[in-house]
Design a protein around this nucleic acid. Sequence first.
DNA 1: CGGCATCCTCTTTGATACTG
DNA 2: CAGTATCAAAGAGGATGCCG
Lengths: 220, 220
Amino acid sequence: MRTYGQYCAVAKALDVVGDRWTLLIVRELLTLGPCRYTDLREGLPGIATNLLAIRLRELEDSGLVRREDAPPPVATTLFSLTERGQRLLPVLQELGRWGAPLVAKRARSDQFRAHWMSLPLGWHLIDLTPEAAPATIELRVGEQRLTITASGGATRTRPGRAANPDLVLSGGPDLVAGLLLGWFDLETVRARGLRIHGDSSVLNRLGRRTPGSIGAITQE
Amino acid sequence: MRTYGQYCAVAKALDVVGDRWTLLIVRELLTLGPCRYTDLREGLPGIATNLLAIRLRELEDSGLVRREDAPPPVATTLFSLTERGQRLLPVLQELGRWGAPLVAKRARSDQFRAHWMSLPLGWHLIDLTPEAAPATIELRVGEQRLTITASGGATRTRPGRAANPDLVLSGGPDLVAGLLLGWFDLETVRARGLRIHGDSSVLNRLGRRTPGSIGAITQE
DNA sequence: CGGCATCCTCTTTGATACTG
DNA sequence: CAGTATCAAAGAGGATGCCG
C-alpha cells in the first residue's frame, strides 16, 4: 500500500480510500447492501476484475468490508460494509453534492445504472405530508427500476421494482433525475419525453432539500 | 484525463479530484490561501515536482484553481482556489473527520507540518465565552507555529506566530493535537512533555465540538 | 531563486484469457 | 460464481537540467 506519509487526517483517510475505484466500491456497497462479487462488477462498469478482487481484499484488510460465506440456499460469498465502512456515507454525500453540477448533461459514452440515483435521491427528497399514508413511486430507466417510498416526512430509495406503485416515471436518466433533483420542471421533462403513469399528484408530496430552501417538485 | 465514464455525481467528482495528490493540493490552498509553487511543495512532502506542476494545470483547467502573476514587490506566481474549488471544503471536512482515528498514533516516518492542524482545529474548537475579549494561543511544534484566535463564539486558526499570545503550547504534534482534539487531558499531555507558558486558564475558554456533546478542554 | 520540463525507472491500472 | 494469471499501457517517483 502506497502512503502519503503525512501526519494529517485527510492524508491518512486518502491512504485508505484514495485509490482508484475504492470509493465507488463503497458507493455500491452502501447502495446495494450486502451483495455478491458479480453484483459489484455489474455496478462498476469499467473496472478490471482483478482490480476489484484486489480492492476488496484491501478494504477487508482495512476493516471497511466484511466477507461472509452465505449459508444455503444462497451459498455464495457476500460482501458488506462494516460499521467503519458505513461511516464513509457523509464523505460520499459531500462528494456527490459537489459533483452534482457535473451530471447536468450526460455524455454519450457515460454508463448508467439506476441504483446510482438511490443515494442522491434519498438525501435530496423529503416528504411534505408526513401524516399521509406511505406513497411509492417507481422509476423506470431502460430496463432498470428504482423505488422511492415517501413516508413520515422522509423518503427512502432502493433498487428494484415497486410492488404497487402510485406513480411510475419512465424515461432517460437525465429526465428522471432532472425532474426529481429540480433541474427541470414537470412541463419541460414531459415535453422532452418523460412518461408518467398513475397519480401524478404524488409528485406534489415530494419536496427538494436545496441549500436553504425547500420546494415541491412541480413548483418553480 | 482518465474518467470513470459513469453518469453518477460521485464518479464525476472523482474524475476531477480523485487523482493522487489532488485533494491534498486543495487542502494546502484552503489552509494557506493564495501561495507560491514552492509554498505548496513545502506543504506536500513527497510529491514529485513535475507532478505538482501537472496537477496544478489540471486543477486550473477544471476551474478549481486560479493562477495570477502577483505585481511587484512580490513578483511571483500565486495559486489560489476559485469559488468552485473552495466548495470542496465540506468534502475535506468529512474526509478529515473520518480519518481522525487514524492519526491517534504517529508513525516514525510520518512527516508533519503545523498548518495541517489548521482546518481540523478550526472545525473542532469553539469559544465558550463569546462575550469576552479575543484570546490567542500560539502552538509551537518544532520550529513551526500556528495561531488560534478565540473570539465571538468561534475559533480561527492560521499558520504563523501570534503577535501577543495569551498562552503558548509547545510540544510534539501528537501532544498538541491530542490535547486540543480531546484524546488526552491536560495532566496527561503535561506529564508527557507538553510545555505550557502563559495563562493556561485560556484553555477553559475552548470547547470541543464532538458529535452530540460539547466540553471544555480541561474537562473529562 | 521560482517554476517548471525531461529522462528514466518503477508501480499501478487496464484488458483479456483462463480456472476451481 | 469468484476469482487468478498474464501482459501491455498509463501514471507516479526521483534526479537533474533549464530558463527568466
